[in-house]
């Protein structure tokens, strides 16, 4: 097994002075399945897309290869404008050290993707023109995410310790999304099935209260729920995100009812929520 470490070259991009990446980089070609078995020289010639131009991987990332117990792709640096990292990831581990751009882990089918920072829009969403988003594996985001996280997600688990932008779990088909922070508007729009577990549902309830009757009809009336299955998760990040559900009354609502959806949103009720404050 192999560990591929890719360090973002700030000097190559001329970003060192600004301290942040200005170029838009499509790194969706960096895939474990492609890297496996390739010599360093060939990997360095991998074509990635920077501001719409095809360039060599080696011009933007410094590659180090080492032996490892499992296949491990590690990408490190200021990656806010690096998009499509861990796209179609299939097995073993893909680590992103630093905040990453849009479409992280889109179309992922297996393994684990770990982001030590924030992620942009469309995490776990479909890759390219495909219909389905993530279809297996686990994504752990130790930060916040942008809009459309879990869009059209089909299977797998997405853990987000921070907050999310708008349209979380939009058109979700199945799988599990777990969010520790606040969520934006348009939550679970068009959700068919799957589970959305919220450690902090105050924003969701606030948004629902602001919507008109037609919009609030997207969810069934919340009912008390014993989320016994949560105890099957052994992941530490999952435990951190769901700790409020262990000590507060838990409710469940089903949606999106406007599309006949049977997705579930599981959340804890705080005193403020119960009082409508």
């Amino acid at each position: 097994m192999t560990r591929w470490h890719l360090q973002y070259r700030a000097d190559a991009s001329g970003d060192a002075a600004e301290g942040t990446a200005l170029h838009s980089i499509d790194a969706s070609n960096i895939r474990r399945s492609w890297l496996a078995g390739k010599p360093a020289a060939e990997i360095n010639e991998l074509a990635i897309c920077v501001d719409g131009r095809r360039v060599r991987l080696a011009d933007w990332f410094e590659l180090t290869i080492a032996e490892s117990e499992t296949d491990q792709v590690v990408v490190q640096g200021p990656l806010q404008n690096v998009h499509g990292l861990a796209a179609m990831h299939d097995r073993d581990e893909f680590q992103i050290i630093g905040s990453v751009g849009d479409f992280a882990a889109c179309g992922m089918t297996g393994g684990t993707v770990c982001v030590q920072g924030d992620a942009g829009d469309f995490v776990a969403a479909p890759h390219g023109a495909r219909r389905s988003g993530m279809s297996g594996g686990v994504i752990k985001i130790h930060g916040s995410v942008g809009n459309y996280a879990g869009h059209r997600m089909r299977r797998g688990t997405l853990l987000i310790s921070g907050s999310t932008g708008t349209m979380l779990a939009a058109s979700m088909v199945a799988g599990t999304i777990c969010v520790g922070g606040e969520t934006g508007e348009g939550l679970a729009v068009g959700m068919k099935r799957g589970s959305l577990i919220l450690g902090n549902a105050s924003a969701m309830v606030r948004h629902a209260d602001q919507l008109d009757d037609e919009a609030t009809g997207r969810f069934s009336s919340p009912t008390r729920f014993d989320p016994a299955f949560l105890s099957l998760y052994s992941d530490r990040l999952f435990a951190e995100i769901t700790q409020t559900l262990e000590r507060l009354p838990v409710f469940r609502t089903r949606g999106d009812r406007t599309v006949g959806g049977l997705g579930e949103v599981i959340f804890a009720s705080t005193a403020e929520m119960a009082l409508g404050e």
Binding site: G136, R193, S195, F225, D226, F229, L232, S234, L262, E264
Partner: peptide
């Protein structure tokens, strides 16, 4: 049709609705 599948740590579990909650 109301059963829910969950894959956790590579193992598949079923949550089947029953009158006291869910049978896992």
């Amino acid at each position: 049709g109301n059963q829910i599948s969950k894959v956790i740590d590579g193992k598949r579990f079923w949550r089947i609705p029953v009158m006291d909650g869910e049978f896992i």
